[in-house]
Simulated scan of single mutants.
Amino acid sequence: MAVAANPMPMRAERRSFQRVKISLYGRYMLQDRSEHSCRVIDMSPGNVALKAERIGRKGERVVVYLHHIGRIEGRIARVFDEGFAMTINASERKRDKLASQLTWLANRHELDLPEDRRHERITPGNPMSTIRLPDGHEHPCRIVDLSASGAAIETAPKPAIGTPVFLGNLRGEVVRHFEHGFALEFAVLQEPAALLAEFE
């Protein structure tokens, strides 16, 4: 009987944390000590869903380092096509700090505060490329600028925010529209040298 009573408080605890949709890049380490790039889909002080290069096993211990947040650790609670969701093991004080950080990040997005320029913007040698949409159609585009985390491109189609796209061979997601095109975030952080080689 004691065993059957345990799941209820866990479910109640999960419901008590409000998830925030934010986009943060980082890296994570699985139990085999392999490191991979990731991006937050949504997060609360108690759990986080990540788009991940490599999906671990349910119950596996994970250590994650996120921009603006720092180090978190926990275990994989569920897996899905492009990543996994994990619980966050943290003290009450750490959870309070996480809640404050998430509130600030969510408000910054809602208020459209200046974009975090943590990654240097570069202009490719050849700005002309193609954008491929989920229906398979390709459209010519001009790259305004690139960074390790994304790109701004000028092109005729304007897919809805959240649409997965390919810029050349790089997978990303539409995150913002502007007058003549849109900005996208890459699925994983790119090395500047590899970006320049891709669009030389």
Rank of each mutant, 00 (worst) to 15 (best):
M1A: 13
I69A: 05
H139M: 01
G150V: 07
A187P: 03
A193Y: 02
I22H: 03
R95S: 00
A90R: 12
L105Y: 00
A187H: 12
K51C: 13
A193S: 13
S16L: 02
E35S: 14
R14I: 10
G150F: 06
I76G: 09
C38R: 07
E191Y: 01
P157S: 06
D145G: 07
E173Q: 13
E185R: 15
G70F: 06
M128A: 06
P124L: 01
L105S: 01
W104R: 11
P9K: 00
E138F: 04
F199R: 08
I22P: 02
E60Q: 15
Y28M: 12
R57F: 15
D42R: 04
N89D: 10
K94W: 01
N6D: 01
V40I: 12
K158D: 05
G172R: 10
S37N: 14
T123S: 10
A148N: 03
R27E: 14
P164W: 09
F182S: 09
E53V: 11
G150I: 08
Q31W: 02
E92A: 12
D145R: 11
L195W: 07
R121H: 10
F166E: 13
G46K: 07
A183S: 14
M128K: 10
E53T: 11
P127N: 07
V63T: 13
H180F: 05
A160W: 01
A193P: 05
V20W: 04
G136I: 03
M43Q: 04
E200H: 12
L24S: 02
H180Y: 05
P134Q: 12
V165R: 13
L105W: 00
I76H: 09
L184D: 11
D145S: 15
E60F: 13
G83R: 04
L102W: 04
L170C: 11
D145C: 11
P124I: 03
S147D: 07
T87S: 15
E53W: 11
T103V: 06
T130D: 08
P124A: 04
Y25I: 00
G26Q: 08
N6Y: 01
L113Q: 06
L102C: 03
A187D: 14
A49E: 15
E115R: 15
L184V: 15
R19S: 07
S16Y: 03
R132D: 10
C141G: 08
N107E: 11
V40S: 09
P159F: 00
R75T: 11
L50N: 09
V175P: 02
R171N: 09
